[in-house]
Nucleic acid binder design. Sequence first.
DNA 1: CTGTTAGCGCCTTCAG
DNA 2: CTGAAGGCGCTAACAG
Lengths: 329, 329
Amino acid sequence: MVSIRDVAKEAGVAISTVSKVLNHYPNVSNETKEKVNAAITALGFVPNTIASALSSKKTGRAALVLDVNRHAQTVDEIPMQYIIGAINKAKEKGIDIITVFFTMIAEMNVEEMIRYFQSQSIEGLIIGGLSKEDISLRKLVESGKFKSVLIDAPGVDENTSSIHIDNEKAQYEVAKKFLNGTAYKKILYISGKKNGYVSEERLIGMNRLADELGIQVLVRTGSFSELEARKLTMQYAASREAIICASDLMAIGAMKALIDMDIYRPVCGFDGVSLMGYAGKQMHTVRQDFQNIAARAVEELSRLMEGGCGQDLVMPHKLIRIKYLDVLS
Amino acid sequence: MVSIRDVAKEAGVAISTVSKVLNHYPNVSNETKEKVNAAITALGFVPNTIASALSSKKTGRAALVLDVNRHAQTVDEIPMQYIIGAINKAKEKGIDIITVFFTMIAEMNVEEMIRYFQSQSIEGLIIGGLSKEDISLRKLVESGKFKSVLIDAPGVDENTSSIHIDNEKAQYEVAKKFLNGTAYKKILYISGKKNGYVSEERLIGMNRLADELGIQVLVRTGSFSELEARKLTMQYAASREAIICASDLMAIGAMKALIDMDIYRPVCGFDGVSLMGYAGKQMHTVRQDFQNIAARAVEELSRLMEGGCGQDLVMPHKLIRIKYLDVLS
DNA sequence: CTGTTAGCGCCTTCAG
DNA sequence: CTGAAGGCGCTAACAG
């Protein structure tokens, strides 16, 4: 392995000079800079990140912590979008991302988590899907040992940023568009998790619209589960005129139930996953650009790692109507 | 940060002794081992992977290289399964995995790829979806600079293992089961990619069955594209009795085309992705356990990294009939 | 603007 | 079985 020392010798300069041009220090003359660069390419020198990290105490490593149901049979589209968005941006930013799943750290207490991430030399965390029940993880974030970006969860402090769409507004808007031109007065709203951060906001948005339009909303908790939404639809849809769900997956569950029941009710979703396109029916939904959210999260983490202060970031959303042809490729 | 030196002091032993118990060296007395371990827990010592890697020249880092279509709107289920399977097993094996996408390295030549992975201190590669067109990547593997495990692609050598199901057999079997009890004589077979490793094997399996049963098979290339399969079905299905596809996504495309054409033809897929469950129709398919394949790949890589020699691994597959309820969660 | 010199935290011979 | 000492490749003061 050719090292910085070889480059220095080849270029006829000191070892530290090479380091300086490598790290784009300001005070190096163009002349020596060129000599060094020539030597670098001549020798095919590759800087050793490990050594650099050890010496500088900056590893540039971050963990993307995601909640995927390991044995779920449904498609994990959202985590995948997060991964794609984050990794691509991370490469651009020169930071390393390792992906970690909730299940891998679920059993750990705070100390163990800290130890785990520290042993991995991780400086930053991007957490997707933190819920109120993830107490250890929350404590980990609050420990301040790592810079963190929380997707869809609150908790801004000096070392922590939060990134999310305006869930309340989005739910309000999509439901409004969905109901536009209709005279429905009896809606079934299938909500997310009880005590879930985004679920509560979405519910508020729904209620605000209901007040405004003077419609009656029956709220039931679907726990973001397709099956649960299916059951709730079976139970309540007959006496309702339309169904609004706090996620696309639940919307699909609702729709399938309606097909089984052989009745028609319009259904509204939330997320904009491509799976909707396979569900066999056009549906209104909010579209979140998960890749973009993750990419933005990486940028934000990068900023934090360079000493920036935590902040609250609100991403834009769109309203769309998804149909089969949208997902053909 | 508490270091090995502090532990040594606390335990009243030499720094190297601590290192030895950390790395489970044989020649340390139980007595000192206990002293050291006590000191470790007392101080909450966390070994520094970076320093260890620099010193030992073993990083224990691997890259999972995957082909995901960044802007594809269909669900990237297979890569996600690979990621889940690989990462979970990697944690168990104590190796670090960073995920890399083909798009991130597509433009690079071999030298650049080598440099990229070396600068990341990566020792091993797990590559999913290597095709005959990925010349640089193939050269990278053949360079012998990294230990590699190829999923669904051939190329075993000293540093390289290959892992895959028996595609020929699987295609033969699923098609046989699918046609069992029918008297169809005119089949449309929508194949994968021309010159694709797995595509060719599957086609051979299909042809073998066709010979055996004396049926006539019209082969068309669907390139694993749902849209292409849809088009081909539109074009040829009317004059055929059944459709067999070399992937589930193409099977879905075929099925949607049949619905549009308003004719019925049974469709057979290959893979066992959960998306099939949303397609609105029961379908025969091969089921590959992608998580398990990836997990096995990590084990194999781990073996290679410890000096083992490359080998060819054939994973088992199942035949299933997938239907909507299978994917409810 | 350039070179010298200590480490970073750990591993690994090599003596004892 | 244990300890001392010399790096691994690089960064970061500090001199010059």
